[in-house]
């Protein structure tokens, strides 16, 4: 039994038939070929699969594709197309590059998506607020410190761009 869904992903409308049990992360990766979103666990604890669902950070391994019917999804591949991006990079992406916020890169798409949501809600987060906001995202390489510097860089950048 398959179900028809309509999802806007990175601005592009998609109409697909999916098995109801299809996880959103598998829909994005295997049906749409957007493999930037990663699977790092099966218990919603690592955050590697984080995407923005109607602007909110969610773990796409714990959302069924059918639940995203009618919704708008932004994956890492679409982050540079969001408001505030400049020269092909979102300020958060720029921050991660400038401040060495990634090593192996596997957690990075989820980290970036979670950071984009944070800065949307709180444009000037403190160190503690950044740590709190990234609680749902595991990184095994960086020790998080340079990720925090990356988010701060992005916050500063977004402020100057708004002016």
């Amino acid at each position: 039994m398959s179900v028809e869904i309509q999802v806007r992903v990175n601005g592009q409308p998609h109409q697909s038939h999916v098995e109801p049990r299809t996880l959103l992360v598998h829909y994005l990766r295997e049906v749409l070929g957007l493999t930037g979103t990663h699977v790092g666990c099966e218990t919603s604890l690592c955050g590697a699969c984080t995407v923005l669902l109607d602007g909110r950070a969610v773990k796409s391994c714990t959302v069924l594709a059918v639940q995203a019917d009618g919704a708008s999804v932004t994956t890492i591949e679409g982050v540079s197309g969001l408001n505030g991006s400049n020269g092909g990079l979102h300020p958060v992406q720029e921050g991660f590059w400038e401040k060495h916020g990634l090593q192996c890169g596997f957690c990075t798409p989820g980290m970036i998506c979670a950071s984009v949501e944070l800065l949307g809600k709180n444009p000037n987060p403190s160190e503690a607020e950044i740590r709190h906001a990234l609680h749902g995202n595991l990184c095994r390489c960086t020790g998080y410190q340079k990720i925090i510097e990356s988010v701060r860089y992005a916050a500063a950048k977004m402020k100057t761009r708004k002016r």
Binding site: P20, L23, T43, S44, C61, T62, V63, L64, Q67
Partner: peptide, 23 residues
């Protein structure tokens, strides 16, 4: 199925396998 954050993890680990899911 409400938010799915209790049910879906159990289903993914196959600790739950309902025949019908009412979203």
């Amino acid at each position: 199925l409400a938010g799915g954050h209790s049910l879906l993890p159990m289903m993914k680990l196959r600790l739950a396998a309902p025949r019908f899911v009412i979203d």
